[in-house]
Design a protein around this nucleic acid. Sequence first.
DNA 1: GTCAGGATATGATTTATATCACATTTGTAG
DNA 2: CTACAAATGTGATATAAATCATATCCTGAC
Lengths: 229, 229
Amino acid sequence: MDLPGQVNCETCRIRSCAVEVLDHQELQILKTNCAGAVYKKNERIFQQGSLCSNITYVKTGLIKIHKNGPSKDQILKLVKPPRFIGIPTVLGDKINHYSATALMPTTVCFIVTGIFKTLIMRNGKFANEVINSLCQDELTFYDRSINQMQKQIHGRLADALLFLADEIFLSDSFELPLSRSDLGDYIHATRESVTRTLSRMKSDGLIQMQGRLITLADKEMLVRISKLG
Amino acid sequence: MDLPGQVNCETCRIRSCAVEVLDHQELQILKTNCAGAVYKKNERIFQQGSLCSNITYVKTGLIKIHKNGPSKDQILKLVKPPRFIGIPTVLGDKINHYSATALMPTTVCFIVTGIFKTLIMRNGKFANEVINSLCQDELTFYDRSINQMQKQIHGRLADALLFLADEIFLSDSFELPLSRSDLGDYIHATRESVTRTLSRMKSDGLIQMQGRLITLADKEMLVRISKLG
DNA sequence: GTCAGGATATGATTTATATCACATTTGTAG
DNA sequence: CTACAAATGTGATATAAATCATATCCTGAC
């Protein structure tokens, strides 16, 4: 982790919808209680179980939110910036209920929890935007959760690849930011099953692979596989 | 559905934490934009895909939140009152992204979405309580989601029984409010597997069953099964 | 370069649970 | 009470994916 020192929220160009509605004075409050940080690939941003007094705002990069389950670690979601994460930690216990780890070089801002709460109390529009964001997360996670449960590996993997292409990289060709093992934790499959399914997709001409570089060759078919489950 | 007419939020004894922080004037606003309703078992409260202009506050009873998946309907969660549901619908499209159905006789209040938003904007404490509630939902759902994915049927069913006993009925003996089929949709299993697993638990002396009445006979063991997965 | 440790590939086997097929019970409308 | 539909129980079979066991491929350190 690298600390680039003080940030300036007033001139920041990657502001969230929520911060966008703050007035001059509120931005000043935010600015003096906000610190930036830079993370390299695979660096932990915060750790499940540890005490936490900050909300994290992911500005650039890509992170995974993951959590220990009864038998293994599971990736709950990949978070594409810009996005607040860890808001649930404002709750009573102030303990992180999940971990966050950078999958690519990532920049974040930490906002002191108390200040975040103050802004919610003080500015209704801010609160409203935060609520919108939480609601959107909820709906997205419901969808993902149902897909994970009901689709079989081909469908889940197709989902993941389409998500990476369409939501994260905005290109049908990208460097896979996850290892086979991580991909498995993300789509709830074993490393071996991921390998097998990717190989199958390659030999079926759905994707191309050269090392980490993946190209979605037959997107129509991938969408169909995703829909069929 | 039965409409008992006007409600009085000022004298209501089943108020949420959020409504608790409203002042006299705000309670008046709420009162005039809030309608009560009563549902019988298996009545639909709102339907996925339909337009919706209300937040639902579940006062008494028990409801299931369920959603169509690629292959079948799935119960996302059982909601124990008092609780707001459908807050995500305040978002852009105003379309329900899931259905809610009463599992027992249930009373609810509908609050016009616009008023809900007004209260958020106007009263920071209210907004804060709503955020707390959403965050709590999020964490609970993460836990449930991971358990569903990683535990096998015995563990998932034990979870469900313990949840019903400890969270819903506050008793180790209760009338099962879900059919085998519903239970299956809740723990992501087939009707047949639920039957088989319940029979097994009965013959192992973990539970007793007389018709709909279930008694958790060996709770220690159920907890152990739940933990082991 | 070489070497070691991690990541990936791939085949054989096992297993949990779905699916299918049918029997039995329960609830309910007439 | 009767009858019919819905809910539940139970066995046989199929199957997706995990697990186990190696083998091969990278990648970075020295």
